[in-house]
Design a binder for these strands. Sequence first.
DNA 1: TCAAATTTTGAATTGAATTCAAAATTCGCG
DNA 2: CGCGAATTTTGAATTCAATTCAAAATTTGA
Lengths: 242, 242
Amino acid sequence: MGTRERRQREVAEREQRFLDAARELIQQDGLLNLQMSRIAEKCDYAVGTLYQHFVSKEDLLVALASEEAQERVDMFVRVHRWAASTRDRMLGFAVADMMYVRHRPEHFRLLQFAFTEVVWGAAPASRRQSCVEAHAPLRQATLDVIDEAIAAGDLDPRGLPAAEICLAPWALALGLHQIVHTESLVEQHKFADPYRLMLRHTSDLLNGLGWKPLTDSTDAAALDALTKGLCSEVLHDKHCQA
Amino acid sequence: MGTRERRQREVAEREQRFLDAARELIQQDGLLNLQMSRIAEKCDYAVGTLYQHFVSKEDLLVALASEEAQERVDMFVRVHRWAASTRDRMLGFAVADMMYVRHRPEHFRLLQFAFTEVVWGAAPASRRQSCVEAHAPLRQATLDVIDEAIAAGDLDPRGLPAAEICLAPWALALGLHQIVHTESLVEQHKFADPYRLMLRHTSDLLNGLGWKPLTDSTDAAALDALTKGLCSEVLHDKHCQA
DNA sequence: TCAAATTTTGAATTGAATTCAAAATTCGCG
DNA sequence: CGCGAATTTTGAATTCAATTCAAAATTTGA
């Protein structure tokens, strides 16, 4: 009978509603002021019901972080499939990432918070695992392009496995987001256009890795063209601006 | 009269004791289990007294993050003064940083947490400012070396102000620490020697920035030699291991 | 149709951060 | 000194949100 299935679907839908409500509340009042009771209330359920889905607030936060990975993953997959050089696709990942973070700064802050010892350590192991799994395709897409680049002769791994090469652009992007998105630091240093800068530095890094075709990172027009191309061809400018 | 001064010193000493106690408790039970009342208890003071120094737990955490900057700053200053090429000193910053983070992983996690919207936003503005100030010398040391490199012709800024060049190595280091220190991610990917890798990538980045003398990042022996040299000459191997 | 099983509920509990009135201490002056 | 005002310390009481759990409601299945 389909009764069991229906129920299962209903429960899944409810979980979705909880997550959506949480997201809205975060958007509205900030992560700082997120309250479990408000989430339940917003969905017209009792707190107890909320706790049937998430054993703790931390659990919910990590679940939220997992779910929000999807949109990013979609972007990465599209970039991965893009008909462009391996190098341009590599830059494409950086562009996709920066578009995403720019348009969903709260998501970035949530991730930052969720991966914090305090939250991560308090979430159940199962949830942590599915969060890691939800993000894995980001890494996988990058690894694929690296492998492809090696196969095509665009990149000489110089003795490093793809996973270790992957670390460099990943870290650069992560660190840049971190710096750009931590309030005070930006206030202090105010980079005019941090993301154009980010792209330039990523390009420099690729040059340093010997990723062909070596390119003049100074050529802002070329980088802007790349960004624009990506926006129109790949990202359906959902996230793109001038 | 010196009465007022003495009192002031006593208060400062007490604050120090609170911070030290907090550090010990974090070391012992983890950031997750830090309790204000335990800190007070450990110092044989009432909670109220603790709150005379720190208006909230967040305030205390950010204060802790500020204080712990000092040791790192000392290392950076020593690297800055080191009689070596600008390029080697740049790598030196990365080495110093990784030594530090390796030996004080809890400090890194604390910083990560403190710069989170939830904590940072809940700390008083004055405390945030002094935290930024406490960390500023790290940035300044790096900027100085960049300026020196430009002046010496080791580095062509290609139209970028030093502050923007600085962003690249800073972000790379930050991102790498983040990845390496977030439990699950390491468990998953297990890089054999993440910090040697980090150094290699930093070297690649410097090559990409055109920082002379351009170097073969593949030469692990050279990077190890650099590390060893730094440990003995600059960092007094307080933080160094085999 | 009804009792067992499951699910939902939200008032009550818990646990930690934070407050604040009372107690203790220090200060300043005769 | 001695004493009252001012300051500091205290920790029990308060607050506030997360979490629990016994009772109520609903669903299941015979």
